[in-house]
Amino acid sequence: MEIRTGELSNPHVIKLLQTHHNDMLKHSPVESVHALDVSKLTHPNITFYSLWIDNNLAGVGALKALNTTHGEIKSMRTSSNYLRQGIAAKLLTHIVEQATLRGYKKLSLETGTAEAFLPAQNLYTQFGFKECEPFGDYEPDPYSLFMSKML
């Protein structure tokens, strides 16, 4: 297992991010989908991670700096061939560690409210995230669940 920083030009990463975005559109209206495309993930305040097993892409995730003490988890997705194998937990552990190393005091995220998002909600809850009010530029939305954790 190897976690790499970047890789946004890798065709496997691009395909997984497109799959992620298309899947979000199946469960939420377009105005409620907050998944970032490749161009937005290249922003300097975002660090993108990809997890590889034997040179096969297993999952992706990103850490966005909201300010000097608050980060946001973005674009968490496991490749279909690696579902239910602990990939998301490994990426989430890495992102939490990176946020801690940066000195963040709080880590937040937005996920969906549809049944398809229950595995993600359960994972975040297991990691100590709790439901919270919208943060950053988010507005209240029935399709969005906001969660945060103090580090």
Rank of each mutant, 00 (worst) to 15 (best):
Glu115Ser: 14
Leu123Glu: 11
Thr42Glu: 15
Ala120Tyr: 11
Asp23Phe: 11
Gly86Met: 00
His12Asn: 15
Leu107Gln: 05
Leu66Lys: 05
Lys26Thr: 14
Lys149Ala: 02
Gly136Leu: 06
Glu2Lys: 14
Lys90Arg: 11
Glu72Thr: 01
Phe135Cys: 04
Gly103Val: 00
Val96His: 05
Thr100Lys: 15
Ile73Phe: 06
Ile14Met: 15
Leu151His: 07
Ala116Val: 15
Gly128Asn: 08
Tyr104Leu: 03
His20Asp: 14
Glu110Gln: 08
Tyr138Ser: 11
Arg102Phe: 11
Ser9His: 13
His70Cys: 05
Lys64Val: 03
Ser80Arg: 04
Ser80Met: 01
Leu109Glu: 09
Lys106Cys: 03
Trp52Lys: 05
Leu16His: 06
Glu131Ile: 12
Leu123Gly: 08
Asn81Lys: 09
Gln126Lys: 14
His34Glu: 10
Asn55His: 09
Leu17Trp: 08
Leu36Asp: 10
Leu51Met: 05
Lys26Asn: 14
Gln18His: 15
Ile87Glu: 01
Val60Thr: 14
Ser32Ile: 04
Leu109His: 04
Ser28Ile: 06
Glu131Ala: 11
His34Asp: 09
Ser9Asn: 15
Ile46Asn: 14
Asn81Tyr: 00
Tyr124Gln: 04
Tyr82Gly: 00
Gly61Tyr: 02
Met24Lys: 13
Lys26Ile: 09
Thr47Phe: 00
Leu66Gly: 00
Phe135Ala: 07
Phe146Val: 07
Leu118Pro: 05
Gly103Pro: 06
Ala62Val: 02
Leu107Ile: 13
Ser79Pro: 00
Glu7Pro: 01
Ser108Ile: 01
Tyr49Ala: 08
Lys26Ser: 13
Lys40Cys: 10
Asp23Cys: 08
His43Cys: 05
Thr19Pro: 04
Lys74Arg: 14
Tyr82Lys: 01
Leu66Tyr: 01
Pro142His: 11
Gly61Lys: 02
Leu83Gly: 01
Ser148Thr: 06
Lys64Ser: 06
Glu7Gln: 11
Ser28Gly: 09
Glu7Arg: 14
Ala116Glu: 15
Lys149Tyr: 02
Glu110Trp: 02
Gly71His: 01
Val13Ser: 12
Glu115Arg: 15
Ala88Ile: 00
Leu16Pro: 01
Leu8Ser: 11
Leu25Lys: 13
Asp23Leu: 12
Gln85Thr: 01
Gly136Ile: 07
Ser108Gln: 03
Ala62Gln: 01
Thr69Lys: 08
Gln98Trp: 03
Met1His: 04
Pro140Trp: 08
Asn55Trp: 00
Arg102Thr: 04
Arg77Pro: 00
Asn122Ser: 11
Leu92Tyr: 02
His43Phe: 06
Ser28Leu: 07
Glu139Met: 11
Phe129Asp: 01
Tyr143Phe: 15
Glu2Thr: 14
Asp54Ala: 08
Ala58Val: 03
Pro140Phe: 09
Ala88Val: 04
Ile14Arg: 15
Ile95Trp: 03
Ser39His: 11
Ser39Leu: 10
Phe48Met: 13
Asp137Cys: 06
Leu118Ala: 07
Met1Tyr: 01
Pro140Val: 12
Glu97Thr: 10
Leu109Tyr: 02
Asp141Thr: 08
Ala99Phe: 01
Leu17Ala: 14
Pro140His: 07
Arg84Ala: 08
Phe135Gly: 05
Tyr138Trp: 05
Leu36Ser: 07
Ala65Ser: 12
Ser9Gly: 13
Gln126Met: 07
Leu83Ser: 04
